[in-house]
């Protein structure tokens, strides 16, 4: 086990145990070991005993902030939609947060999805999470039966093979371009500060696509989304997606058809990305969870790049700055207009 991560794991367990025992929080959102090698399952600990199962490692690929708004709501006393909230403090929820996850919590605060006083953030620095597809291509698609994580490498083994892989070689692309490894908001720190990563180009994939011709870009896009099965895992894992009714579920008017028509799938992916404009924290969950391996993060990265170019804001880093699409400047560029 990685020394760094096992230390963080220990600290999380003792801290969460204390918080749950003292009934300071009603639940804690973290991770436990999954049933397959190199997986971590998002987990809601509700008792001090649960806290002993929590872990932190390089396989925590799902952004736990996605669970926060519904969990907080579920802990409120049952009432009719029109009834006011009861007086007095409501149950609190603890959550583990790395840099990007904390930025998502910050955005949920800005968008009034959660109340700051009901959230207890355990912040930890993050050195990046592992991309299973990169691991898969290194070991030639063979099945991993055992994996063992060290500080800077992972040793994986299966039928007839055993390999040591450098962590840096298999980190997710979003983690390799991470600008914020340490949490922006936290109440308790677990583990140490992680040094900022040197990132020369934050948007290598966007640049690559932008350099193509129009026709090639269209071909790339159609090819990329052609394997989409419309399971909406990318949407549901996204902490930014909390609308009670998603645009894909609207029927009058129906913005997107329900089957695998290329036009409908295109519109779904464009709109899903567009709804994250200026809000996406590059946490990479959408891309990681896609069962078909679609690199839809390129679309949100393109928007992030444009937002930085045009409006100079970085989502969730500065909780006082308004989100770029909820504000304006009279001098915004309009050279795109006729």
């Amino acid at each position: 086990m990685s020394q760094i991560n096992s230390k963080i794991t220990e600290e999380i367990r003792s801290k969460v145990k204390a918080l749950l025992s003292a009934e300071e929080i009603a639940a804690f959102v973290g991770f436990i070991d999954g049933t397959l090698p190199m997986t971590a399952r998002p987990f809601t600990a509700r008792s001090p005993e649960d806290a002993d199962r929590l872990v932190f490692n390089s396989f925590c690929v799902v952004n736990p902030a996605v669970y926060l708004p519904p969990l907080l709501k579920s802990l409120e006393p049952p009432r009719r939609p029109t009834d006011p909230l009861p007086e007095g403090p409501l149950p609190k929820v603890g959550i583990l947060a790395t840099g990007c996850w904390s930025r998502n919590i910050s955005i949920q605060l800005q968008e009034n999805q959660i109340a700051r006083e009901r959230v207890v953030v355990l912040g930890t620095g993050c050195r990046g999470m592992v991309d299973m597809r990169k691991v898969g291509s290194i070991i030639d698609g063979r099945e991993i039966e055992k994996a063992y994580e060290l500080d800077d490498r992972i040793s994986v083994s299966g039928k007839g093979f055993s390999e040591e892989i450098l962590l840096e070689d298999v980190l997710r692309d979003n983690c390799l371009t991470c600008i914020c490894p340490n949490p922006v908001i936290m109440d308790h720190r677990v583990g140490g500060q992680v040094p900022d990563r040197r990132v020369d180009n934050r948007f290598p994939f966007v640049d690559e696509i932008e350099s193509k011709s129009l026709d090639k870009r269209w071909e790339w896009f159609q090819n990329e989304i052609s394997s989409c099965i419309r399971c909406y895992a990318c949407r549901n894992v996204c902490p930014l997606c909390y609308c009670p009714t998603c645009f894909v579920d609207d029927s009058r008017p129906q913005w997107v058809g329900k089957s695998l028509d290329p036009a409908d799938t295109s519109i779904f992916h464009i709109l899903r990305a567009f709804h994250c404009a200026g809000r996406c924290t590059n946490c990479g969950s959408c891309e990681t969870v896609c069962p078909m391996g679609i690199n839809m993060r390129v679309l949100t990265s393109k928007l992030t790049k444009d937002v930085i170019d045009l409006y100079g804001t970085e989502a969730g880093v500065d909780s006082d700055a308004p989100l770029p699409l909820t504000t304006y400047s009279e001098t915004d560029r309009q050279d795109f207009m006729v």
Partner: peptide, 18 residues
């Protein structure tokens, strides 16, 4: 003015995908 920001991003995005 709000719309202007949205349109700028949208136009860039749909041109980006071809």
């Amino acid at each position: 003015l709000y719309a202007r920001r949205r349109f700028a991003l949208l136009k860039n995005l749909i041109e980006f995908i071809g």
